[in-house]
Amino acid sequence: MSPEDEQGYPEAGQTRTRLPGGDPYGGAPRRTGRTSSRSLVTVVGVVVLLIAAIAFANRGDSSPDDTTQKNAAPKSAATAASGTKPVDTKVGGIPSGFAHTEQGAQSAAANYAVALGSAEMFRKTTRDAILQTIMTPAHAASSEAAMDRAYTPAFNQSLGLTTDGTAPNGYTFVSRTSPIGTKATAVGNDTATVEVWCNGLLGLAGDKSTNPVTNSWFTITMKLVWTDGDWKIDTHSQKEGPAPVPGDDKASSSDEMSKAVEEYGGFTYAR
Rank of each mutant, 00 (worst) to 15 (best):
R123D: 07
K85I: 03
T166G: 10
E144I: 15
A205M: 01
G26C: 02
P74E: 06
G27S: 11
A184Q: 06
W217C: 07
G206C: 07
G200M: 00
S209V: 02
S62K: 15
G247Y: 04
V87S: 08
G229K: 00
N199G: 07
K85G: 00
E262C: 01
D207T: 06
V194S: 02
A184R: 09
D234Q: 14
R123I: 02
T221S: 07
F267W: 07
P179L: 04
S158W: 01
G181M: 08
V43N: 12
L50S: 09
S252T: 08
V114I: 11
D88I: 04
S237R: 09
A72L: 13
F173N: 06
T182Q: 03
M222Y: 12
G33I: 05
N169T: 15
P244K: 07
A115R: 03
N211F: 02
G83Q: 03
G21N: 10
D65R: 12
M121W: 01
T162Y: 07
L201S: 03
G265W: 08
D228S: 13
T125E: 13
A113Q: 04
K70G: 10
G45C: 06
N58V: 13
D249H: 14
P246W: 09
K208Q: 13
L40E: 08
V48K: 05
A129S: 06
F122T: 14
I233P: 00
K70Q: 15
K259H: 08
A146C: 05
A99E: 15
P29V: 04
F218K: 04
D66I: 10
